[in-house]
Design a protein around this nucleic acid. Structure first.
Lengths: 259, 259
DNA sequence: CTCCAAAGGTCCACGTCGAGCCCAATGCCC
DNA sequence: GGGCATTGGGCTCGACGTGGACCTTTGGAG
């Protein structure tokens, strides 16, 4: 196909003598030469906001940061942000109110079968996401257990666990995501948190395409409790193991339901 | 400071009744509301190309993909790419030759004390990078060992290991990076490879600021061999453990040398 | 020796996006 | 009840970046 990174031929006219120069490095160049931009600013902004809703970071009824501040944090202009917000308003997810103490509020979270987030998952992409998630989330659980957590960390974890346990199907995905994010947060590495947020968002897109069964929720609840217990107990291998089991369950479910 | 994600007040005039709406989610919103763009296209392109050089994906004497193709893969216009290439030319890293079988060639790799990549690492950022790297690379080693590797995978690994073993200081960083990237590649998840590329690039920036000692190289060589052996033997826990030990060594070195 | 393919070098018209500004609405505080 | 702070809504201007067409250089193929 391509013929990149070829060894420089013998007998170059001038300049430094070429030396060794290796063969291709297979996957790494595809990662390095991947697109700089994910798309135009508008699309990226919509995607980011959708992730925020899907992950339940802002719950229904909650308010997004004011337009000016949000635009600044996202590094886009207010015009672009407002375009994105308008799109999500017409889609029925958001609602804006003017005046002091106004703002943009979450009306509903994008649930199964939303018009956005079109399909097109290849088997390879599913394997990719699941493998990546395995590495990130199991690592996060282990790292969280290895840290000496603050009181706030512990309360944050137990609060998210309690919130998630014994909830109806309606809110389960959102609260489940929040618990997983909380684990990443208390691991203490912002980069890790960011990565988990991203991969979790991709996983949620997949999950939204399959049904949610009561037995699975119960099972997940028990696993969640075991994970949090191991983290609070400062047991890194245990946290990793229980998290790995938990993830394996979801992975099997996804692989079963998706082609 | 900020007052985001506040619970919606009681008694909203209209629309859906507000319901629960949680407290803030601490770190996750900072990840979700992080900047969409890392900077302008030119800067991002320069950064990406610098990473390519630092990681040794294109060795000195090697050729970059043709401008048109590289621009397409990076998702930037030729004008922007050429600006970036020109910058790296004047910095002495690249050299362009016209005509058929011409192209842009690597002259030197940015080594310690390069004018680019200014300092400014806070202790928190160092901890962040190292923790993230621990998760990613240990996870990659484990995942690689868990997979049934193809013949090509095995050869790729052993080749990178051999290349790296017993090299002088001049090329060590580059070849070391290539070995680590190879491990990520054979783990079989493109997303994981991308993440490792990114974090490895950040680590290399740090490493370029500290000296490279012969005893450390020897030690690393032995650890590298143990890691590859564990992966080829299909021993996930062993691969994880040896990789973790290897990373801990580098981490201690970095923490020692950097403030 | 000629032609041609493949690469870098240059230019310009157009679209996208960001910065700044002002307007409109809304509800608390005095 | 008036002022005012805060929020969304809308506008214009300028810079950056893209896409495309075109030229120039170079070395191999015929």
């Amino acid at each position: 196909m391509r013929a990149l990174l070829v060894p420089s031929r013998e007998g170059l006219s001038s300049a430094q003598p070429p030396e060794v120069s290796s063969g291709a490095v297979r996957g790494a160049d595809e990662a390095l030469f991947r697109p700089i931009r994910g798309g135009n600013a508008f699309e990226e902004t919509v995607e980011r906001l959708l992730s925020t809703l899907r992950l339940g970071v802002v719950a229904p009824g909650g308010r997004l940061p004011p337009g000016r501040e949000l635009a600044a944090r996202l590094g886009v202009s207010r015009a672009t942000l407002r375009e994105a917000l308008a799109t999500l308003q017409t889609a029925g997810y958001l609602e804006s109110r003017r005046g002091r103490y106004g703002g943009t509020f979450v009306v509903a979270t994008p649930s199964p079968g939303s018009g956005l987030a079109p399909g097109g998952r290849s088997a390879a992409e599913i394997d990719d996401v699941l493998a990546f998630r395995q590495v990130l989330e199991a690592g996060a659980a282990e790292a969280a257990a290895a840290r000496s957590l603050t009181r706030a960390d512990r309360e944050h974890l137990t609060a998210r666990l309690a919130e998630c346990t014994g909830t109806g199907q309606a809110d389960y995905r959102r609260l489940d995501s929040r618990l997983h994010l909380a684990i990443a947060e208390v691991a203490g590495s912002p980069s890790l948190t960011t990565a988990v947020v991203d991969v979790r968002s991709r996983v949620n897109e997949l999950l939204d395409a399959i049904p949610l069964l009561a037995p699975n929720i119960e099972h997940s609840d028990r696993q969640h409790a075991a994970i949090v217990t191991a983290i609070l107990a400062g047991d890194p291998p245990g946290a990793r193991r229980t998290m790995a089991e938990h993830l394996a369950g979801t992975a099997a479910l996804l692989r079963g339901f998706l082609t």
